[in-house]
Structures are given as C-alpha cells and as structure tokens.
Design a protein around this nucleic acid. Structure first.
Lengths: 211, 211
DNA sequence: AGCTTTAGACCTACCGGTCAGTCTTATATT
DNA sequence: AATATAAGACTGACCGGTAGGTCTAAAGCT
C-alpha cells in the first residue's frame, strides 16, 4: 500500500517535462507560436513527436504552460516588491533590478512574453485568454499599490494611480522592446538605471507639488 | 502584331486596390499575419481569391504594402513635428495629439502596427525586414532631434538623448498597448494628455538642472 | 505478464499559389 | 449604331506542401 504514496511513478517524468519545456521555450521564442512546429520542439528535446503528445495534449496547452509559468514569476516579483518594507522608491528600485535580472537570466523567456502580448488573443481558446487576463489584472493591481504610496511620498505627481501604472509599465515594456530588437543599440540595464535615476530626482523635486 | 485594338485600361484599378487593402487591413489586424487567409481577404473585399493575386503577387507583398503605408504615415508625422517652429514641448504636444488622432481614426491601423512589431521578423524575406528597419531608424532619428532640443530647453534631464527617445517611445507604445487591449479601462487620449501635462511640469521645474 | 513510455508512420485539414478558361468593356471598323 | 476584336479583369477548382494530432507496435520497467 505504501508503495508509491505521493511519489511519482516515473522519476524521469519531471525531468522530461522540463526538457520539453526548455525546448519549447527556445523554439517558440525564436519562431513565434504559429511558425513553431511540434515536430521541431520534440526533436530539440531529443524525443519523437508522439512522446511530446504523451505529456501535453495539444500545442496550445504546451504553449500556455510556458505562458503561465512566466506570468506567475512576474506576478511574484511585483507582489514581493509591494510587500517589502520601505519607500515606494525603494520598492521600485528593487523591482526594477529584479526585472532586469530576470530578463538577462533568460532572454528567451522575455522574448516569448513579449510576443505573447501581441500574439492574436483572438486565436486562442477563451479559457486560456481569461486566465491570462487575470494575471495581468493582478499584476496591475500590485503595481498600482506601489504607485499610490509613491504619490504620497512625492515620487509621482498626484495623478490617477491607475494611469500612472500604465505609463510606468509602458516605459518598462517599451525599453524591453528596444532591447529585444537590438540589444547592441539599447542596453536594458542602463535604460532601467536611467529611469530609476529620474525617479530619484522626482522625489527630490517633490512631484506631489505639481498641479 | 495588330496595333491596339480593344485596348482597355482599368479605371477601377485604384478603387479595387484600396478595396483590397481595406479588407486586408481588417483581416490582418484582427487575425494576425499567419491566421489570416488570402481567401478570406478576397471574399471580404467581394472578389475571388484569384483576383487578389492579380493585384499582388504574394501574401507577403500585400502585407508589406500595408506596413509600408503605415510607417510612411508615422514617419511623416514625426518628421513634420521635428520641422515645426517652436519649442520641443510645442512639437511634442502637436505630435502627441496627431498620433492620438491617427490611432482613433483607424484603430485597425494601430492594431496592425503593434502586431507587426512582435510578429516574427525571422519569418519574412530579408529585403522587407531591412526596409522596415530603415523606417524605424529614421523615425528614431527625428525623435532624437526633438529630444535634444528638449534637453536644452529643460523639458528633459541632461541624459543620453537616444535613451530618452527610447523611453518616450516606450511610454507611447506602452499606452497604446493598454488602450488596444482594453479601451474601456484605458483612454489613450487621457493617457497622452497626462503625459504631456507631466512634460509641461518638467519644464517649469527645469529638468536640465537635475544631476 | 502487465503497465508505462516511446516513436514515427499515417491521417486529415488547411492554405498559399496557379492556371485554364470565362466574362467584360474600350476601341476600331463598317 | 451596330458589330467585331483584343486585352483586361476575374474566377474557382486544383495542386503540393505542411503541420497538428492519432494510432499502434515495440521497447522498457516492475
């Protein structure tokens, strides 16, 4: 009875799964969803196509397994930043550095994330789209919390916190795009550094005094 | 060979071309390049598939006809802003309003532009990609010119003008994304207005004094 | 033996692009 | 005006390639 209590029957299963996921990440991020083929992903992982279908039941499911992981990671970062002690500026500095760290650690990860946003949401099944939407909403919510604190502390002007969140997110995403398109011309670390430096100046000037 | 009996030029050619292009814009912008089919575009325009191939020799060529038009329009706007008389703030205000105007006038246009950026450039023929790249470079160049002026006038801190261009572009694109994903939650006109208001405050504060 | 895992041939649907043929219309001729 | 003619405009069946997904036989493990 106690034979396989709570244990995986196949200890290789996890290993295989991550092997497939790594391969999928590489292929999806370089070719995009439509151009990537299941055949190629399977071969990249060193298996046959049939095996890939033994682990995931469709291309879409495999894709969203990656997307989900990514959004969880990002949401975790923003949430952690929000829960930290310290000023909004401290939180944002920490968050900015963590994001840069995350992106440099896995550029494919970042590339896929970016393609996903533009990828035709119309083409995916509703339940996946909805799930994704929830992640984005939550992320914005956490960010908004930090921004609100920042308004009180004079880092941001006293504008609508939601709009400021969108603008800040836009800034980060915009820089991300530049970096992905040509990392020679635009260094994300430097860009993020400049943005944070600007924020520090804003606090010195006291942005909350702005009408 | 007989001279020119029954010679017939097509007075409807322009009309047809624009009909096809409008249809293509609708289909491409809602489904993305890969999911869109030539059949659907042709039917949407009210013709058979073969006719579409009478006007364009491939799907890719049709797609880039749209992309080209779009980039020309955007580049024209930025160039015109740069050549205007007045302060950098004036130029940016004018440009911001024109961009909002352009986007509201044709949301599909905007949607396609956004999808294009993320679309797998690896999948298109090199000559098209190169052409596109030139448009983007030129646009950045013009924008940088305005930013440089802005630094002198105290609208921006004395940072690297190229990086500031990327950040400003990122801001606009980021807001554009928010708006496209949910125009109920995020009003682009309001977002752009807030951004411009912030710029005005920056000038009052004298951003060039920032270390 | 019996269960899990793997492989890749096979099936099927789809889509870009072609082409042989039809319809339409401007112009020349009568 | 009526007719003839040639080229332009248009069509949709068809072809070839491709790729998601299935099936099943073989191999491995307990």
């Amino acid at each position: 009875m106690a034979k396989t209590l709570g244990l995986r029957k196949n200890p290789l299963k996890d290993e295989r799964e991550t092997a497939f996921k790594r391969a999928a990440l590489r292929v999806f991020s370089s070719k995009g969803y439509h151009k990537a083929t299941m055949q190629e992903i399977a071969l990249e992982a060193g298996f046959g196509k049939g095996t890939l279908y033994w682990y995931w039941k469709s291309k879409e499911e495999l894709y969203f397994a990656l997307i989900r992981e990514m959004h969880e990671e990002f949401l975790r970062l923003v949430g952690e930043a929000s829960k930290r002690n310290g000023s909004a500026l401290d939180k944002l500095t920490w968050l900015g550095e963590e994001i840069v760290e995350l992106y440099y650690r896995d550029r494919d990860f970042c590339k896929l994330s970016w393609k996903m946003r533009a990828e035709e949401l119309e083409t995916f099944s509703p339940q996946y789209v909805e799930e994704l939407y929830k992640y984005i909403q939550q992320t914005k919510q956490e960010l908004k919390r930090i921004i609100s604190q920042g308004i009180e502390e004079g880092v941001f002007p006293p504008f609508d916190a939601y709009y400021l969140s969108c603008m800040l997110l836009g800034l980060v995403e915009g820089m991300e795009i530049q970096w992905l398109e040509d990392s020679q011309a635009f260094d994300l670390r430097k860009g993020m550094g400049l943005a944070l430096e600007m924020l520090k100046s804003f606090q010195k000037l006291g942005m909350n005094k702005i009408v």
